[in-house]
Design a protein around this nucleic acid. Structure first.
Ligand SMILES: [Zn+2]
Ligand SMILES: [Zn+2]
Ligand SMILES: [Zn+2]
Ligand SMILES: [Zn+2]
Lengths: 141, 141
DNA sequence: AATGGTTTTGACAATCATTATCAATAAGCG
DNA sequence: CGCTTATTGATAATGATTGTCAAAACCATT
């Protein structure tokens, strides 16, 4: 049976207040900064649970770090500024259908997909195009 | 000045012969198995260079490992069996257009995108019920 | 409220991919 | 052939994530 602990609530609350995607380490630091004595491993576990039960959305930064965000419970994707981390939720029914079809056409089942768009937001576009946190890994367009 | 070494050629050749995406560690193991004394760090560096100059395509497995593949120089995406690693190149003009549009609509520039579909291939579907390796990372479909 | 079986926590060690070091090597050039 | 300098590679270091396991917390039940 799944039990309710203040730790899990703390992580859920911290996720809700967080702006954009955050890492487990980042969330743990934030929680500590607000006085919470929660353990790092617990943050990892709570985030994994939240993602597994659909309460959190997760993706991997191009550097390989797992990032989490409170999920609105409906499937969507993200448009992420690689300089400042600004994240916009986007829906794309056409992509959903395409992904489902392309998997089926090749005999694949249990298909999931990774669809994320990285770019420079309107605010960051003018400034120096320094290779920020999200600078590596994406397929070249 | 960039120099030509047999190590870089070995990595390039190994990438060309590799089936589907391979990790740096995997390529290094393969090279060793064929008698090459190339160092692990060198494989990492060569792969990073190849990816940077567009000769290799890279993506991250749901487990966070960086995978590489010889790039055919034209933009495409991949349908990957999460059990055996079978990879199918897929093209999706609709997705390309969508990605470009959604970025523009939100004022994003220099947009790149990550679009990959993971699933179980026809061969692996009957024998792999465990969702283990994909429990984390990708957006839920 | 007290009990007790079970789950969860958390400090710490362990793992594992990747990167940094840095002396030794070798590519390219004249 | 020698020189300059990029490159290599053994190894240490890093850093995120996971495993361990005794102690603490949860919660149904008494
Ligand atoms: Zn921005
Ligand atoms: Zn989707
Ligand atoms: Zn397969
Ligand atoms: Zn594309």
């Amino acid at each position: 049976m799944k039990r309710n602990t203040w730790q899990r609530e703390a992580v859920r609350a911290a996720l809700d207040t967080a702006e954009g995607f955050v890492s487990a380490q980042g969330l743990h630091a934030t929680l500590h900064a607000t006085g919470s004595p929660i353990g790092l491993a617990t943050v990892y576990r709570a985030l994994a649970d939240l993602a597994a039960e659909g309460a959190a959305d997760s993706l991997q930064s191009p550097e390989g770090e797992s990032l989490y965000r409170a999920c609105t419970n409906d499937h969507h994707h993200h448009l992420i500024c690689r300089n400042c981390g600004l994240t916009v939720e986007i829906e794309a029914d056409a992509v959903e259908i395409w992904a489902k079809n392309v998997a089926a056409e090749h005999g694949f089942s249990q298909a999931a997909h990774v669809v994320d768009v990285f770019g420079l937001c309107a605010t960051c576009a003018p400034v120096a195009p320094s290779p920020g946190r999200f600078a590596r890994g994406a397929s070249r367009p």
